[in-house]
């Protein structure tokens, strides 16, 4: 489910955090689904449980998951919770568009990309 890349220079907790986030945004982990416990994930990945806990904490701050005391962590149902993350991502997107424009990608091409990427309801 989660794979760690030891050649990746990112700290492990960041890798776990990013992997889990990807699982949530792609819908692989549906909303309100229970995430693996810190304990089982630590044993499964052979990773220090504190590291896992740290990734969980950050995801909770970003609003992707919420933890229920005594029950565990769950994928967040409320997508709006992640306001901070949204802002960060939009900033990144702006930067990317600037670079793409500089590389000669037209405005139309970018617009069609937006339409493409939009999940169909």
């Amino acid at each position: 489910m989660i794979s760690l890349n030891y050649r990746d220079a990112r700290p492990i907790y960041e890798q776990i955090r990013d992997e889990l986030r990807k699982l949530i945004v792609t819908g692989a982990l549906s909303s309100e689904e229970k995430l693996p416990s810190v304990r089982s994930l630590a044993a499964e990945l052979a990773i220090n449980p504190n590291t896992i806990q740290r990734a969980y904490n950050e995801l909770e701050q970003e609003g992707y998951i919420c933890s229920v005391p005594g029950k565990g962590s769950f994928a967040s149902a409320d997508a709006m919770a992640g306001a901070a993350r949204k802002k960060e991502l939009l900033e990144k997107l702006r930067e990317l568009m600037r670079e793409l424009r500089w590389l000669g990608v037209t405005r139309e091409e970018l617009l069609s990309l937006v339409e493409e990427g939009e999940p169909s309801d």
């Binding site: 492990i12 810190v38 044993a43 052979a46 990773i47 220090n48 449980p49």
Partner: peptide
């Protein structure tokens, strides 16, 4: 790591290889 998570075992591990310890410590 399962023991650490489950029972709160305190672990002291030596190595001459930092990379080896990075994930677990």
């Amino acid at each position: 790591m399962g023991d650490v998570a489950e029972r709160g075992t305190t672990v002291l591990v030596s190595s001459h290889n930092l990379r080896e310890l990075e994930d677990v410590c």
